[in-house]
């Protein structure tokens, strides 16, 4: 008993000068973040480093042999494999179609639904509903609706005398179809971000402009739109990055076809890694994707800084 008391007293004595309040706080704080941090290192940062190493090897999942090949996989992608640039082109078209359409529609809906009036809640609920729906379910239903002549969309178009295309069998129409259905799925998210931003703009600004005789459009151009700029920038970057990550939608609606017309980067990585089992080449593609997203992020940061000054 006595010895135990003694040692603990001693321990306390020697510890006190070292364990200042500040140090204690630091240790506690690191303990608080440690589960998140350790998991992050194991399941995120480790794999991120590993993918760099994988990308420099020739490695087939089925036969299992792993050989160091330096930058051959990158050379293969960038200089030799014609599919790669086709995939990049598709990814860019996908993003350039999706982002403006999504943002324009989101803004229109937000303006229509930002003021409290009867029916606003109903419409907001409707436009947001696809966001909470699983992308798999959404893709399945639209694939069904967009079948050729027997498909529901074309049957309905036929009722008004329009001869709809064979949506998912023509490369260009298929690309348009996956873009539009994806926009419908996700536009609700950007809509509420815009609504939040619109609601934070003081009403006085617009009223002041109106008193000076500005038309609705002028008010929007000169007052609302500039004030929305930070939100627009954020939305643009999130949506662009998001568009590069789209996988399930493509996987289920078109499988990258027809004529590779909707083969985008995320799907191409999956296909190479988990259908052809080319681990090395797929890892090189993953690194390229990482670099693209990183560049987009840096551009965003630069734009933000310029906007701030």
């Amino acid at each position: 008993m006595a010895t135990a008391d003694d040692t603990s007293a001693m321990a306390r004595h020697t510890r006190v000068p070292w364990l200042t309040l500040k140090r204690r706080e630091t240790i506690e704080a690191w303990l608080f973040v440690s589960p998140t941090l350790i998991g992050f290192l194991i399941f995120f940062l480790g794999p991120l480093i590993a993918v760099v190493i994988y990308s420099m090897s020739e490695w087939n999942l089925l036969s299992g042999g792993q050989v160091f090949v330096g930058l051959a996989n990158y050379r293969d992608a960038l200089a030799e494999n014609p599919d790669f640039w086709h995939v990049i082109r598709n990814s860019v078209i996908f993003a350039m179609g999706l982002v403006p359409m999504n943002m324009a529609l989101a803004l229109i809906l937000a303006i229509a639904l930002s003021r409290p009036r009867r029916g606003v809640v109903f419409f907001r609920t409707v436009f947001f509903a696809p966001v909470v729906t699983s992308a798999v379910a959404w893709a399945i239903v639209w694939k069904f609706l967009l079948q050729g002549e027997g498909g529901t969309v074309n049957q309905l178009l036929a009722l008004v005398g329009v001869n709809g295309p064979n949506w998912l069998r023509e490369p260009d129409w298929a690309m348009a179809a996956v873009i539009v259905t994806r926009v419908i799925k996700m536009v609700g998210l950007n809509m509420i971000l815009y609504i939040a931003a619109l609601q934070s703009i003081p009403r006085d600004y617009e009223e002041a402009a109106r008193l000076e005789g500005a038309t609705g459009w002028q008010v929007f151009r000169m007052v609302t739109w500039p004030l929305l700029a930070p939100t627009t920038l954020i939305i643009m970057v999130i949506t662009t990055i998001g568009s590069f990550k789209v996988f399930d939608h493509i996987y289920l609606m078109t499988g990258g076809g027809p004529e590779n017309g909707t083969l985008v980067l995320a799907f191409y990585i999956y296909e190479q890694a988990f259908e052809f089992f080319n681990v090395g080449y797929a890892s090189a593609l993953a690194m390229i994707m990482f670099v693209i997203v990183l560049m987009l992020t840096i551009v965003q940061l630069l734009l933000r800084q310029r906007g701030a000054t």
């Binding site: 399941f43 995120f44 480790g46 794999p47 991120l48 590993a50 993918v51 994988y54 990055i241 590069f244 990550k245 996988f247 980067l265 995320a266 990585i269 999956y270 890694a273 681990v279 797929a282 890892s283 993953a286 690194m287 994707m289 990482f290 997203v293 990183l294 992020t297």
Partner: peptide, 11 residues
Amino acid sequence: MVPEEVTIIPN
């Protein structure tokens, strides 16, 4: 900012 597709292979 990093898509899951990037880390899924090592994972």
